[in-house]
Design a protein around this nucleic acid. Sequence first.
DNA 1: AATGAATGAGGTTTCATTCAT
DNA 2: TATGAATGAAACCTCATTCAT
Lengths: 197, 197, 197, 197
Amino acid sequence: MTDQSVIKIMISKRETNKDEKRALIIDTALQLFSTEGYFGTSMSKIASTAGIAKGSTYNYFASKEDLLKAIINDGFKHLTESVDYLFVNFIDDKSMEKYIRHSFKLIMDKPNYWRLFFALAIQPWLPKHFMADIMQKMEPMFAKIAEYFASKGFLNPMAQVMLFVSTLDGVSISYLTEPENYPINDICEILVERYCK
Amino acid sequence: MTDQSVIKIMISKRETNKDEKRALIIDTALQLFSTEGYFGTSMSKIASTAGIAKGSTYNYFASKEDLLKAIINDGFKHLTESVDYLFVNFIDDKSMEKYIRHSFKLIMDKPNYWRLFFALAIQPWLPKHFMADIMQKMEPMFAKIAEYFASKGFLNPMAQVMLFVSTLDGVSISYLTEPENYPINDICEILVERYCK
Amino acid sequence: MTDQSVIKIMISKRETNKDEKRALIIDTALQLFSTEGYFGTSMSKIASTAGIAKGSTYNYFASKEDLLKAIINDGFKHLTESVDYLFVNFIDDKSMEKYIRHSFKLIMDKPNYWRLFFALAIQPWLPKHFMADIMQKMEPMFAKIAEYFASKGFLNPMAQVMLFVSTLDGVSISYLTEPENYPINDICEILVERYCK
Amino acid sequence: MTDQSVIKIMISKRETNKDEKRALIIDTALQLFSTEGYFGTSMSKIASTAGIAKGSTYNYFASKEDLLKAIINDGFKHLTESVDYLFVNFIDDKSMEKYIRHSFKLIMDKPNYWRLFFALAIQPWLPKHFMADIMQKMEPMFAKIAEYFASKGFLNPMAQVMLFVSTLDGVSISYLTEPENYPINDICEILVERYCK
DNA sequence: AATGAATGAGGTTTCATTCAT
DNA sequence: TATGAATGAAACCTCATTCAT
């Protein structure tokens, strides 16, 4: 093994460590933001919960708001990757059902992320474009669903899409607010029945 | 006119003044909270926007959080008053339609209030019981709607109610986030069609 | 005495107090800035030295830089008032001598102010216009002196003015750096001899 | 070539590298200190501007203040070397003129250094002895100039020296503050005329 | 009841310096 | 020697709340 390789491995190890710590901070902050709120969580608390020094977080994120953006963007990247494949072709009942079930799975898998996401979506203090950027990326998906609704003979398919998306949002929010009492699975079945038969 | 009456009038006038100023503070704070966020709005700004002294607000509300609770409770009182009469009897298609249309009207009439309301509903930093209290008051209404759904032969009527309510929530939030582009009226008609025929 | 008058007196008293406290903060900050440097002096130290709470300074000055500007501007206002009258008419030997002696007096009377002033003049971090504004106000005075030098037959009177002013600056700075060992009075006489005979 | 020589060359090369890097850091820091101010320049910025790692600077200078001292001392060593030869003998008109012209040349050649130097001379936060040491080294030179002034029949020659030095300082500072508008050459001639004829 | 100056805890952020690699 | 992540003290500033007038 040459010296070069050793150095490369060391660098790569440092990189790995850095990535791991970045992920640690993001996870910690997501957990705290979603349970205590963005303003209710101090950078000090994030640092101490993550077991690092206060100043260290600023080696990874330039500011608190930057950290927040990173959380949302990272999560959203994950999301789109997992959804895109469902829409490569024209939608039919089968893929629509997959989409609905997948959506519910996403919410239940990462409740903290979604709690934060929806809280932010309503907050007025974020830079306008922050959420707008995200919404824009979903446009093509909405278009596909509209096609699908049209093919099923729905009148006013675009309004139907908005209603459909809002319904998923509303259900998600209700579930996230009180996960233990909300009949999320029953509701999933009702929606599958309503939209995919 | 007796001295007594004079005093009564004076008191009543003072009361009125007090009530008016209380209402002024609530209106101002609601406006600011809903546009700049709760944490983005300082007590100083509320006072100066309302044209009164900073210290004076504390003659009407013990704390900032108290002011927030008062805003929500006042608004909610208004809400229930306006809704209760719809449910005195067993519910039918007609009153269900009225209820849906009324719900949309409420949202569109006081968007600031509802923006704040939904933001808080998702926020985790409020005392748990705060929103719970409000939800509890809606229980009887939910029960009536469940009866109605059952009478229409819906399977699993309680889940249907939750879905129905979540849908209204989701639609409301979507509308409040972007009022100008959201086909709120079309969606209202779709829901009336779906639930009241 | 009417209620109105009482209120007016109370307000006026409060105003007086406020002015006094503002002056107290300015004096304290000037003292500290000039001895420990602007960056070496924390707002906390200013407050505690002045015997008030940390946050209180911000009731009088919006920021540390604002406080600095207020110090310079207040001092400069004082300065121009005291100098302007010397230049109402065309300058002669007599008024030139007065001006020189007055300049030395100013420096010796408020060494802290001038130490701060010259330190800032050299500092590169201030907004450009900050010092420029001040210099601009001195332009008319320079013009008068140039006239005077011209009347005495000096060649290149504008350069002579610059040199004259720079000399006063250099002498001031030297004196302020080491007041106890600097023959400020002897130098004053030399300059009077050189420029006013 | 013996092994010894090879080692010597390697060491010498390492020394050279070390000196070069030291010089690089000093140059970079001087540039930044003089344009952004000492407090406005972070060690990180110096390192990154110089293209080395943050921690490495501490292999050359024990602290930020040490670096500053090194800058001043290095520059001053350079200065005295270049001036000393002017004063080996008794001073006359010719060498006095050389000295004045040389002083102006120094300022115009290394404005950054002098901007920093004068800024520090006024700053109160440096250890007292820091500037005092430097001034002390200039004493012999001042004595020579005093002799010269005495030989020309100036009264109070020591005060004349102080005034002369302060004048050079004041002119330098004025020039450094606004190099483009200051008639530095005209002023040089005026001084040569005044002091060397 | 009204005022607004005073308070000080607590927030975010910076940065000189250290140290493991 | 070089690196750059880690540290934590300390800075500036905000703001809910109190209280003397």
